[in-house]
Design a protein around this nucleic acid. Structure first.
Lengths: 167, 167
DNA sequence: TGCAATTCCATTGACGCCCAAATTTTCCCA
DNA sequence: TGGGAAAATTTGGGCGTCAATGGAATTGCA
């Protein structure tokens, strides 16, 4: 099912003999609503996967660049990494795309890919790498929540604060 | 009776030949009041069960992401664990859902499931695991209350040593 | 003209959707 | 307080649609 929100959940599927993969139908529904023609794609900045999306993703990218001063080195770097390596893939009438060689190389993609929802965009991973990445993400999230809860309720160990200080 | 509050009590039922389970009617009433279309589902962050709900649960999950800056590595990572593993299940006209394979795998679900109310959300468990979890929860709660009462009785004596110093 | 890439078409299987039966629960009245 | 009727819920199944996949045909390019 597909709510009215963004890209959600994850799906794995095989490339066929010609190297095509069908974008999961729920994701296609989001793209259709977004109204972008084709699929906007660029290598992800900090992981070995590719970011995909439509207008919403583009907006996010431009939002990242806008605050950077026009001729700064920083802006140049981002612009090179994001825009310079972007592609727009065609989506055939069946909802399939053909990943370019450079994309497959970057993400280490072979016979299968994993589609992973990130609300305004989704990522394409080599499934094995994704499993590792997901485990890492869960573990980090677990630590993060532990910190949060430790701060919120200190069940039976009142912080060794001298007096009755309100926080 | 079903109050006007959240998800309450627990129910167990079997999956049918097509792998469907009907959501207990009292829970459906809560969902209807919540107004969410479908059932928002996510592997629980703390236990081997799945969290289910509507807008209220969605708010909890997205609330973890909101404070993180848009294109940060941390944001990406957490959204992998949160959004990438969420699903929205369709509820048929009889109030049944079809659990995905990944959900069943995560929770170890076979032929039966237990629905457990948690106020603003409910969980789906493999019944055996739930019994174990419940037993442990009771035991932990017992210890916890013991500490509390001990503190009351001895108002100014040094606080009793906490139990399990945390996993 | 041969090769490759893209578009189009067909098959398969899964899933959503609807209808019907049976069991359980609720409520009312004797 | 017990029986029984009515309603609601839980089950089971059938059918149609859509998505995924594989192959065929057509077009463009060398």
């Amino acid at each position: 099912m597909d709510g009215s929100g963004g890209f959600l959940s994850n799906y794995t599927s095989r490339l066929d003999a010609k190297g095509r993969v069908s974008i999961p139908a729920p994701f296609r529904a989001v793209l259709a609503r977004d109204g972008f023609e084709g699929l906007y794609v660029h290598p992800s900045l900090d992981v070995e996967a590719v970011d995909c999306g439509g207008h919403a993703l583009l907006r996010e990218i431009h939002g990242l660049l806008r605050p950077l001063s026009p001729y700064s080195e920083e802006r140049d770097l981002f612009s090179t990494a994001l825009i310079g390596t972007s592609e727009i893939l065609k989506i055939d009438s069946e909802g399939r795309v053909n990943l370019s060689e450079s994309i497959k190389a970057y993400a280490g993609i072979g016979a299968e890919v994993a589609f992973v929802g990130h609300d305004f965009k989704f990522q394409i991973w080599e499934p094995g790498r994704f499993r590792v990445h997901l485990a890492e993400a869960k573990s980090r999230l677990h630590d993060f929540r532990k910190q949060l809860s430790a701060r919120h309720v200190a069940p039976d160990s009142p912080p060794p604060r001298p007096h009755g200080a309100r926080e």
